[in-house]
Amino acid sequence: MRMPTVFIDGDQGTTGLQIHERLRGRTDFERVTLAASERKDPRRRAQAINECDIAILCLPDAAAREAVGFIRNPDVRVIDASSAHRTQPEWVYGFPEMGEGQAQRIARARRVTNPGCYPTGAIALLRPLIEAGLIPHDFPAAIHAVSGYSGGGRAAVDEYESPDGACAAPFKVYGLALEHKHTPEIQLHSGLAHRPFFVPAYGAYRQGIVLTVPLELRLLAPGVSGERLHACLDRHYAGARYVEVMPLADARETAHLDPQALNGTNDLRLAVFANAERGQVLLSAVFDNLGKGASGAAVQNLGLMLAA
């Protein structure tokens, strides 16, 4: 039986290098690579893409669209780690735990679009609760997230890790024009009727995300509580290998959230913090923006597609 081949286009970027590292030692496929002198040659890239079984695109959006345009071989399957196709209906959204049957859809798909880092946490929290009717579709959702600076790509990494990196700001809130490219993706795949209010930030650490969604119980249906919200998430992710829901008892004893707690893994930890007296709940997600938020998710999706 022929060994399947996998080509990573853009394998020297942050996500591509992490995927290489996560695939180290795997023997269930053959890895196709280009020489350094050929990595930006459109002809050689097109040839490699059309000759492989699965192409993983770790490219800026425009370059990812270009790479997809190279494809002439109908048997080539694609995992796109860029944001170029995340709201396109003909692409399968690569979040296996998002809903029933999603892992199977990914396994069979020709075109899979990897979720963005921030959307991974936001959708993981919101979609099950919206589908269950505990949060209304037209809820005015507000989302705040702090990522390690690697989320800003090579330019941000160079800024913080250069000899002058000590001068970089310890904390940056950005996206102040309220046009962050992840917002439509969050709205679509979480099931929100209206655009959420999304406030992203970078901290002076390399990787890891804490994402939070505040809820006022008075804006939800009568009887919705922190316990019911937690129970819904717990049911939805029961048995999920890479997603855990913190027990309510543990949440009550938690004084802070560390964005780096799950670095180096493909894990996603969700929690519900409730203050019944104040009528407020805080939903949270902690994960590695280079793991479940990027390379880890791509490798997870690759595993599903190879096993199909």
Rank of each mutant, 00 (worst) to 15 (best):
H144F: 10
N263V: 10
Q300M: 13
A109S: 06
Q12F: 08
L219W: 13
H194Q: 15
V92F: 03
G101S: 05
P163R: 13
A145F: 02
T15H: 04
E51K: 10
S162R: 06
R108F: 08
Q207A: 12
Q280N: 12
A261Y: 04
E21H: 14
V281I: 14
I49A: 06
G239P: 07
D288P: 11
P4T: 11
H180K: 06
R43Y: 11
H182I: 14
A276N: 11
V6E: 04
L217F: 08
D80A: 09
A255T: 15
T113S: 15
A231Q: 09
T15S: 04
A36H: 08
L229V: 09
F171K: 04
R44A: 15
I79C: 07
A238T: 12
V146Y: 04
R195L: 09
D41Q: 00
R218Q: 12
E185I: 00
I79Y: 09
R206A: 13
D75I: 02
I19H: 05
R44T: 11
V32P: 00
L134C: 05
Q47F: 12
L262N: 03
T27P: 03
V78P: 09
I135A: 13
C232N: 02
L283H: 03
S295A: 15
H20G: 07
K40W: 12
A168R: 06
Q207G: 10
R241S: 14
G116I: 02
F95M: 15
Q102Y: 08
R252E: 14
A48E: 08
H144K: 11
A63T: 01
R252Q: 15
L257Q: 00
S83K: 12
A307V: 05
P119R: 12
N266H: 10
D41L: 00
Q88G: 11
R206F: 08
A63H: 03
T120D: 08
A249E: 15
F287C: 02
Y242A: 13
Y149P: 09
V210F: 01
D258E: 10
P200G: 01
V78T: 01
A177K: 15
A155L: 06
P128L: 01
A240G: 13
N114T: 14
T254M: 07
H236E: 04
D158N: 12
R127D: 06
G191P: 00
V286M: 05
L211Q: 00
D258L: 11
E216V: 12
Q280H: 14
R108E: 11
L134H: 07
A294H: 09
T265D: 11
Q47V: 01
H182L: 14
V210D: 01
R39E: 03
T87Q: 02
E30I: 08
A276V: 05
T14R: 13
M246E: 15
I71V: 04
L268I: 09
D250F: 05
A285L: 06
G175N: 01
